[in-house]
Nucleic acid binder design. Structure first.
Ligand SMILES: [Zn+2]
Ligand SMILES: [Zn+2]
Ligand SMILES: [Zn+2]
Ligand SMILES: [Zn+2]
Lengths: 132, 132
DNA sequence: TAACATTGTGTAATAATATAACATTAACAT
DNA sequence: ATGTTAATGTTATATTATTACACAATGTTA
């Protein structure tokens, strides 16, 4: 049997933490939360994060230096991500839109270049904050 | 007469440096380069950068923590940016495509939310690196 | 199995990126 | 001139991320 991506102990601990979190987590907040499980150093966290990003289990929200679990199985193949970020409450939601991903995957720049990999961050107000 | 956005001395020094640079510049590299002009502390650089980003004269490449001058006058109004980034040589190009900006500005998520502000980073190989 | 290569781990030190706090000054509008 | 806002200068500190090195676990191939 071919295990797709069996996570190591550290990777699993850190993935579980991020996956349970309702909001993106920062590396040092992750570190603080897993110290009781024996992960003591920043590098141990960053190594697990790198791997998890690489295999598509989590994404990095670049503008926030934070990490969120992927809930969109298609991302695990294409490294093409899109998020909406609320500028007031910082709520982050992964956007899963076939139309959008199709448009961006097929987008050609001036030189005719296509890009299968991209990261898109939309900023605005979430529903809750719009009503306030 | 109403000056739109007259830059202050520090802002001008830092903008000129970034504008002349063929590649995105990082904050501490900027700091190093302007020390001879009397800008001695990180905060002086970050304050100018914040302002320049805010008024649309430069953009931050979030995935690289670097800053690039805007060469697309329309960005100065809408905080809506798109870049292509070469994964080998790190060349960054601002994409100016009416079609793309229209598509993204009109994009609605599941909840019908629109986002006038966004940042898009495409990753791939530039022309040069494709040929190698 | 044995040998090798690849990947992950643990630990310490350090680099790179960014902000807080405070006092002061310049620019601008009543 | 007075009050207000924005910018500055300076010091210290917080936050984010990597380098370097020794070692262990895992997987592949002979
Ligand atoms: Zn995803
Ligand atoms: Zn919100
Ligand atoms: Zn621009
Ligand atoms: Zn290139």
């Amino acid at each position: 049997m071919h295990k797709e991506h069996a996570l190591t102990k550290n990777q699993q601990i850190i993935f579980d933490l991020i996956d349970k979190s309702p909001e993106p987590m920062k590396a040092y907040s992750i570190l603080f939360n897993v110290q009781k499980k024996g992960i003591k150093a920043p590098l141990q966290v960053y190594r697990a994060l790198d791997k998890l990003v690489q295999i598509g289990k989590i994404h990095k929200i670049e503008s926030r230096n934070a990490f969120i679990a992927c809930h969109n199985s298609s991302c695990q193949v294409a490294k093409a991500t899109a998020f909406s970020i609320c500028e007031i409450c910082e709520k982050v939601t992964e956007i899963s839109s076939a139309g959008l991903s199709k448009y961006l995957a097929n987008f050609k720049d001036k030189d005719g270049m296509k890009y299968s990999k991209y990261n898109l961050e939309f900023f605005g107000l979430c529903k809750k904050c719009t009503l306030k």
